[in-house]
Simulated scan of single mutants.
Amino acid sequence: MEPGGDEALLRSIAAGDAGALGRLYAQYSHMLFGYLHRLAGDRMVAEEILQDTMLAVWRSAGAFQGRAKVSTWLFGVARRQAHNRLRGRSAPEPAGVGLPERADLSAGPEELAILAAGGTPVAAAIDRLPEHHRDVIALVFVAGLPLADVAEVLGIPVGTVKSRLYHARAAVAAALTAQEVPK
């Protein structure tokens, strides 16, 4: 998309253009869904959180101030929605909000790999990581965000992202090595 394209979509969404929301959804839904699926661990919950995210975007597009890239702003919104939902503080469904129909989120290559790893020792080791390490793993490896964008989404320095990524990888490697040791 041309520079300013995503920002223009947000301005259109803020003006009530549901078609712009649909275009933003089409552009980012697969990345957001992969990230949310990793956080939630359940496809249906991830779909619900994605819809919560798009509703929050619909409501708050006018608050976007351009201090971040639209993509990192979207991941921040998605992260907040996921943490609210997963902590049991989901908002009630609004009545009569005219949002566009959601597209089919059939599994793409990244999601298929994640789903295939769902029962693997790697996935189990990742699931045992502290939340702040799982967040970094999901944003880097599932969503494919650069480290600077991950830092922006999480509101932490890039050095902290690197440290968390290092420690998360080390913990997963240690867990896998411990499983390989014969008893």
Rank of each mutant, 00 (worst) to 15 (best):
M54C: 03
R59M: 13
R38V: 05
K162N: 07
V45H: 03
A174Y: 11
K69N: 07
I156C: 04
A107Q: 09
I126H: 00
D104T: 14
I156F: 03
H132C: 12
L176F: 02
L9T: 05
A46E: 03
P121W: 12
M44E: 15
L39E: 04
P92N: 06
V140L: 13
S163A: 13
H133T: 05
E93Y: 09
A61S: 10
Y25A: 07
P121N: 11
Q179N: 12
A168K: 01
S29I: 02
D42W: 04
R128M: 04
K69R: 13
D6F: 05
K183A: 15
Q65V: 13
R38G: 06
G98Y: 08
P130L: 08
E47G: 13
P92L: 07
R11Q: 12
E111H: 08
L165S: 08
R85E: 06
R128F: 00
T177L: 12
G88V: 09
G4M: 04
T53P: 00
V140C: 08
D6N: 12
A63M: 14
A8G: 08
G159D: 11
D127A: 15
E93K: 11
N84D: 15
A68M: 15
A151G: 09
M31L: 14
H30F: 13
R164F: 10
A178T: 08
A117P: 02
L139I: 04
G41F: 02
F75R: 00
A8D: 11
A78Y: 01
S163L: 14
P121S: 12
L50M: 05
Y28A: 03
L154W: 02
R89D: 14
D135G: 02
L165N: 03
R89W: 13
R128P: 01
K69D: 07
A171N: 07
R11K: 14
L147D: 14
D104P: 11
E152V: 09
G96V: 10
A168N: 02
A82L: 03
A117F: 05
A26T: 09
S163I: 11
F75A: 05
V172D: 00
A151P: 03
R23I: 10
A124H: 06
L139V: 04
M31W: 08
N84H: 13
I13A: 02
R128H: 04
W58E: 00
G5R: 05
E111Q: 12
A123Y: 03
Q81H: 04
G88Q: 09
H30C: 06
Y35R: 01
A116L: 12
R128Q: 05
A61R: 00
P92A: 09
Q51H: 11
I114T: 07
A107N: 08
R79D: 09
R38L: 03
E180S: 15
V161P: 00
L154Q: 04
G22R: 04
W58Y: 05
A40T: 10
P130C: 07
A113W: 09
A46I: 01
H30T: 12
F141M: 10
G5P: 01
E101Q: 08
I126Q: 01
A175G: 14
E2L: 12
Q81T: 09
I126W: 00
L24P: 01
V181C: 07
W58K: 00
G66H: 05
A117V: 03
M44F: 14
A8R: 06
L147H: 14
D149T: 10
G4K: 04
P182W: 01
V142I: 08
G159C: 06
A173G: 12
T160W: 06
P130V: 10
A15D: 10
E152N: 08
A14H: 06
